[in-house]
Computed example of a mutant assay.
Amino acid sequence: MSGARERSGAVRGAAFFDVDETLITAKSMFEFLRFWLARGGDDGTRYARHAAALRDMSALGIPREEVNRAYYQYFAGTYAADVRAAGRDWYAAYRERPDAFVTAGLSALARHRAAGDTVVLVSGSFRACLDPLAEDLAADRVLCGQLVVDERGFHTGEVVEPMIGRAKADAVAKTMRELGLAAGDCCGYGDHASDLDMLRVVGRPSVIGDDPTLGELARTHGWPVMSSAHGARGEE
Rank of each mutant, 00 (worst) to 15 (best):
W223G: 10
R55I: 04
L217A: 15
W90C: 03
G3C: 10
S123K: 10
G77V: 09
D185A: 09
D140P: 15
A128W: 02
G77I: 07
E6C: 02
R204W: 04
R55P: 02
E31Y: 13
A110Y: 04
S194C: 09
T103Q: 05
K174D: 15
V11I: 12
A86C: 00
L109H: 11
G3M: 04
L106M: 12
A167T: 09
A173C: 09
A4Q: 15
A10R: 14
E178R: 11
A183N: 09
T118D: 10
V172G: 06
G203F: 06
D117Q: 05
R5G: 12
A52K: 12
F154Q: 05
G222I: 04
F16Y: 13
D20H: 10
L179M: 02
R5W: 11
A76R: 12
A218T: 00
Y71H: 06
H221I: 01
A59R: 11
R12M: 06
V207P: 02
R95Q: 14
A52H: 08
G234K: 07
I164Q: 14
V148R: 11
A38H: 08
S206T: 04
D136R: 05
S8Y: 01
D117W: 05
D82L: 04
I24M: 07
G87R: 10
V148F: 00
T22C: 04
L109G: 11
S206R: 06
R88P: 07
A139I: 10
L147W: 06
A14N: 08
L143W: 09
E178F: 04
L23V: 12
G231T: 03
A182S: 13
R141N: 13
S2V: 07
L137V: 15
D117I: 00
T22K: 00
Q73N: 14
